[in-house]
Each structure stands twice: as structure tokens, then as C-alpha cells.
Design a protein around this nucleic acid. Sequence first.
DNA 1: TATAAAACCTGTAGCCACTACAGGTTCAGG
DNA 2: CCTGAACCTGTAGTGGCTACAGGTTTTATA
Lengths: 138, 138
Amino acid sequence: MTTESPTYSRGQLARSTGVKGETIRYYEQCGLLAAPGRTAGGHRMYTDDHKRQLNFIRRCRELGFAISEITGLLDLAQTDEKTCEQVRQATAAHLVDVQAKIKDLRAMERTLKDLIGQCDANSTAGCPIIDILLFQSH
Amino acid sequence: MTTESPTYSRGQLARSTGVKGETIRYYEQCGLLAAPGRTAGGHRMYTDDHKRQLNFIRRCRELGFAISEITGLLDLAQTDEKTCEQVRQATAAHLVDVQAKIKDLRAMERTLKDLIGQCDANSTAGCPIIDILLFQSH
DNA sequence: TATAAAACCTGTAGCCACTACAGGTTCAGG
DNA sequence: CCTGAACCTGTAGTGGCTACAGGTTTTATA
């Protein structure tokens, strides 16, 4: 009396996780998502384990982790010792990256606002934005 | 008694603008930087005009404009009518993009900090980061 | 002036994380 | 049983470079 666990097609998995079907295939191809079993005809059959793993991957991607970083996290999730500290470090390192990107973008934002401000105050001929970008010295 | 304007090799242009030599070639290839004259032997000879144009391109890239957007800006810089308003609009549109990216990254930042905080407060077995990413319902 | 080294040339392939085909096969509903 | 949707594989394209390979030209030194 073995209870068969349910399986899902690629489309069903896509709908239930919000990850596009083609992307799921890509994740398998690059070794991120475990290869599922197949039907007699060759169609992929995913299990609840795949669903959990794919949701994990999706959440990590939403947090901006690279594929290679997620591979690392999944490997850590498999092992059971000293894992937590390593995961914490990987997450902290990623946080630093994210904060650096934010800093860069905020510098861009300030400059863009400045440029637009110059433009609004424009009374002369020509475009201050173009002029500044063409001729500024720095 | 024509005063010859100075010319620069690719490497000289690279050093004086901070844009890598290979990147300069790429910009020419994709139609962003005007093709320069050549020596008898086929080496590129850049002028001060190229230098100005490349500096403009570099500054736009530093502000996060896409190559296609810069092409548009350079086209606008060439024409002389109604240009300013179009440039202002392009810049404003880009600012919106940048602000959207900042918003996304800040959301990531908050979540990553939360996760790390969970980890710091961890007393149980297992890794809270992994657990949350694997099993959260949202 | 000869030569060696640096810089240049072209063209192509790789990076990341997908996305979008083409051309064929299998599955599910009626 | 048949149709049409969903699936299969493999490949090429995206953006903005970067990194070769394999050859030519220029430049600096002896």
C-alpha cells in the first residue's frame, strides 16, 4: 500500500511556481534543478521535491543571487554540518554586492536629476544635458 | 599652412578616456562611435572629435544609458531643433528606470538583512535562511 | 639600419540568464 | 480515433562587453 506521490508536467510546474517552462528546462540544463523522471514518451515528470527546489531557486533569484551562488546554497542545504555559518556568509557577501549596486544607482539618480534640473532652468540655445555630457571636464 | 589636427592611436585614445581599447572597437562595430580614418598600414587614427564623442559615450554609460539610448542621444545632439525637450524626456525616462532598479534592490536588501538577522538569532539546529527559502509559503 | 617588442589588425567565441524559435513527438479531451 | 495543446531537442539571439588566436604594423632601442 505505497501512496504514489503526485507528479507534474513542466507546464503544471511552471504555473504552480511562476517560473517559465523554458526557464525550468534551462535550470535543469545548467545543473541547478535536479533532472526529473520521464514518462514512457519522454516527457518530464516533476515531484513535490522538484517544486520545493524550484521555489527555493525562484526566491533566491528574486533576491538577486547568481545561478552559481544558488548552486552553492543548494549544496550547503544538502550537507548538515557547519552549514548555517557558510550560508550566513554567502548571504552577507551578496548583501554587500546589492548595497554596492544601490550606491552606484543612487549616484546615477542624483546626476540624472541634476541634468534634468539644468534642463528645466534652461534659457539659452542648445541643450544643457548634451552640452554638459559633451564638454564637462571631469 | 594648414594646422594639422592631432591624431591618436586606439591605445592612446583608450588611455586618455578610460575606455578599454577592445571596447572602443566594439563601439565602432555597433555604430556608436564614428569610424576613424586609417594609416597606410590600416591602424585607426582618432581625432579630438572622436575623443569628445567617446567621452560623451563613457559618461552616458556611467549613467546607465543603454547603447541604443546613447545612439539616440547622439543623433539628437546632431540635430538642432526641438532637441532639448527630447533629450530631457529621454533622460527623465531613464531616471524612472534607474529609480525602479533602486526600488527592487532595496527590497532585496531588506529581505537579505532580515534573513541574516534570523540567522544571528538562531539557536535551533538547521539553518534558518535555508529553511525560510525552502519552506516559506508566499 | 636592423631587430625586437609592443601595439595594432580581423574575426570569432565566451560570459550571464534567459528567451525564442524550428521542426518534430506525445499526450489529453471529446 | 482524432485534433490540438503541450511537450521534446537543439540552436541562435539578447546586451555589453572581454578574451582569445594568428597575423601585420609601428615604434623604440642597439
